[in-house]
Design a protein around this nucleic acid. Structure first.
Length: 139
DNA sequence: GCCAACGTTGGC
DNA sequence: GCCAACGTTGGC
């Protein structure tokens, strides 16, 4: 099972917004970048991902679960863009900040650090385990 | 709020 | 098909 990371500005759509959606979850719409879209196409139901607050917050705050595979993004007529559905699974007891990630050399290869502009990105199993530990949540 | 880094667009 | 111009993202 693959691991991912989803970025969102909390002012626009934050962790609490996803939590409010409950088990119904929400479609991860609005992605207009091929790499991010391709990552979503590669997802399967049951895959897990981190929820990261960009711009304001700059920390990973929770774990989400993919509950629907890639489908057309209903917020556009452009058939190129697709999105998956996700739901909030569990919060981090201790959010893991960008600063903490950057200061750990073992996480220096994370896409989050290397390509800060990619909004949907893969996470390796090792990175996943380390960050879950730092955030004091189950892996 | 600034601006570097990156992706996309479009004229040639 | 190149690449300059432009728009957007997101850390700082």
């Amino acid at each position: 099972m693959a691991k991912w990371l989803f970025k969102s500005e909390p002012d626009v759509f934050g962790w609490s917004d996803l939590v409010a959606r409950g088990d119904k979850g929400e479609q991860w719409d609005g992605v207009r970048n091929y790499q991010a879209r391709n990552n979503m196409r590669a997802m399967t139901v049951g895959d897990l991902g981190f929820f990261y607050h960009s711009r304001t917050g700059l920390e990973i705050v929770g774990v989400v679960e993919v509950i629907a595979p890639a489908h057309p993004d209903s917020t556009t007529d452009d058939p190129r863009w697709e999105c998956v559905d996700v739901r909030a699974l569990r919060p981090f007891a201790k959010p893991v900040t960008m600063q903490a990630i950057k200061s750990d050399p073992r996480l220096s290869e994370m896409v989050l650090v290397k390509n800060s502009r990619l909004s949907v990105q893969p996470v390796t199993d090792e990175e996943w385990r380390m960050i879950c530990e730092m955030g004091e949540t189950a892996a």
